[in-house]
Design a binder for these strands. Structure first.
Lengths: 247, 247
DNA sequence: CGTAGGTTTGACTGATCTCAAGTTTGGTGG
DNA sequence: CCACCAAACTTGAGATCAGTCAAACCTACG
């Protein structure tokens, strides 16, 4: 028995099982992965751009984001993450980090050596397939972000980001379909959507005034999911999240 | 001997060898892949969003792009492709297309069944690894596009797109570092960068007036690569293209 | 209760868009 | 070889969405 007593790897197993329909043996194999646990405060860099990494970073609890910074010092967040996400699976084959990985809230993180994951993937092909599928979905999410930032106006962009985060939070088992935390600051929403925090603030107020969302601090309630989806031009298929209530 | 007499798979082998350092056997195995050849005119849809596909689409010659269309009918190009690129490797594990694949110019395409590629990857792990690495680079490119569209101004965005396309063209062996074709229309550049074609036109003229590029129709010459890179905030590492002259 | 980070508001600016009219280019048929 | 046409490119003028700057207001936390 490893330190898995607190079910550290549970969120990842839940996710991979959804992506790959794993066997009992597959799940046991995952559960016996060796890892190192860490707890980090909010806004802590876990992996820095340029670093050569030899282990993956599994988000056990809390929230995280990946981001790049332009030469002019502008920040762009390229993805948000919920518990169960492996934050940098791509580093197994591309070991030089091309972006930063940072916590958004306090977060519990399990470090897993690349070699261990490779071994697991070879011994358990369905797990390997689920892991690869996960990286491909990551790519699909990036493409959808390109579309949002490139061709949607501020209201649709922010609505889309909220819809995506809501579905992923529900899939990860940390939220209900209409009630969830958006753990990031408005500054971070701005950096994810390519806007300024001032405009994010005004647009969130607009969505509120139009009656599609309600907020209290960083707790969000979606008052009208169908209208929200229409505003966001949100089609959740690309997430492969299996949340029928939100499809 | 297959119909490979015209060396149809050559561009892909060149690319995978660069990504995976393949053995003689690996290359031979790729070369014996069965495929179906097709030639398509410019602006032809090869794969349509929503389709369930069972084969991959290898670009042998010519240029292609992948794109999504918003509910409001706005188009966003999410990637451009050069000879040797497999246009939809992700469909092996996510068989429902979440975007369109279209030709930009007349293009020669080899269709390869997913099952054949799976078999190849299992029998030749280094080939499999190179293929996966390719999908991960595709993800890295998407992230870089998010940064461009989200946080760079029109001039940097267009310059970045040109730099990326130049490096990839050189790596594919269809261009020299400072002289290459940009086969897409200004409309398509606009749809890739999240701008309008009017603004793309003005910005290309600006880059010309500033002496960093020269154009004749769709032939481009980069007059000052260092300045171009600086304007674009372009760091080619993420492409893993191994073009030292442009690094 | 003081402080820092986050949120909200107001007034003004500006990069990019929109619309609309030319101009050039490349292909096609007579 | 030329006339014609459609698509692509270019230019101009005015409109707008989102940005900038700056101040005020919360609110969590020490």
């Amino acid at each position: 028995m490893t330190t898995d007593s607190l079910n550290v790897l549970g969120p990842m197993i839940r996710k991979l099982d959804r992506l790959g329909d794993l066997s009992e043996q597959d799940c046991l194999a995952i559960r016996s992965l060796p890892f190192t646990l860490g707890v980090f405060p909010a806004n802590r860099v876990l992996v820095r751009e340029g670093q050569y990494v030899t282990r993956c970073c599994l988000l056990v609890s809390g929230y995280a984001a990946r981001q790049k910074v332009t030469k002019e010092g502008k920040r762009q967040i390229v993805s948000f993450h919920v518990p169960g996400d492996i934050l940098d699976l791509q580093h197994i084959l591309l070991p030089r980090a091309d972006h930063n990985v940072e916590t958004i809230t306090q977060a519990k993180v399990a470090w897993i050596a690349h070699d261990e994951i490779r071994r697991l993937a070879e011994a358990h092909p369905r797990v390997g397939e689920a892991l690869w599928r996960d990286t491909l979905i990551d790519g699909a999410v990036s493409r959808e972000w390109v579309v949002s930032v490139g061709r949607r106006d501020a209201r649709a962009r922010i609505a889309h980001m909220i819809c995506e985060f809501a579905v992923r939070s529900v899939a990860a088992g940390v939220a209900l379909p209409t009630n969830f935390e958006l753990p990031m600051s408005q500054d971070q929403i701005a950096d994810a959507t390519g806007l300024t925090s001032v405009h994010v603030n005004r647009t969130l107020q607009l969505l509120e005034k139009q009656g599609v969302i309600a907020r209290d601090r960083r707790s969000y309630h979606i008052a009208d999911w169908d209208r929200m989806r229409a505003i966001a031009d949100f089609e959740p298929d690309y997430l492969h999240a299996a949340v029928p209530a939100m499809a």
